[in-house]
Design a protein around this nucleic acid. Structure first.
Length: 143
DNA sequence: AGGGTGACTCGTG
DNA sequence: ACACGAGCCACCC
């Protein structure tokens, strides 16, 4: 294996958590990090998605992991080295009914109040089952 | 083998 | 409200 078993477990946990995001909803890198029990590593969550295999035969790949449903804490589709990346993410989200708006600076944004998925994280799940309670959140912000 | 980069966040000033 | 700095750590020179 190229990666340490520890890192591999992290990748696995992240991909599994992302698969829990409901169709037509979005969450943040930071929230995924909390779901897998490593709240101080939202950045590594980005690394995992960046390296998500395209190859359909891989255990986790672009087809079975809804990578497009993860955006940053500001409600913006994170800019990449390649502009097309964020564009295709926006397209993938719109394809499942998510409205993506364009800000003054060209940022591709999603309204968390409308599409956000931020289930409460129970202490007993931390770094273990990584299952989550899907409570209808009353996230109020963004405007 | 060593250092820079980045699909992030949060605390400060 | 915006700019920085620190923490994080797998990848890629």
């Amino acid at each position: 294996m190229a990666r340490s078993e520890e890192a591999q477990a992290f990748f696995h946990a992240v991909y599994s958590a992302v698969q829990e995001i409901p169709h037509g909803k979005v969450t943040s890198y930071g929230h995924i990090a909390k779901l897998v029990g490593t709240p101080q590593r939202p950045r590594q969550v980005g690394v995992c998605l960046k390296h998500l295999p395209v190859d359909p035969s891989a255990r986790f790949n672009h087809e079975n992991v809804p990578w497009q449903r993860v955006i940053n804490a500001k409600g913006v589709i994170s800019p990449r080295s390649q502009p097309e990346g964020s564009r295709s993410q926006a397209a993938a989200l719109e394809a499942e009914g998510v409205v993506v708006t364009t800000g003054a600076l060209g940022e591709l944004m999603v309204d968390f109040a409308e599409y956000g998925w931020f289930p409460r994280i129970l202490p007993s799940e931390e770094g273990d089952g990584l299952e989550s309670v899907d409570s209808e959140e009353g996230e109020s912000d963004e405007e």
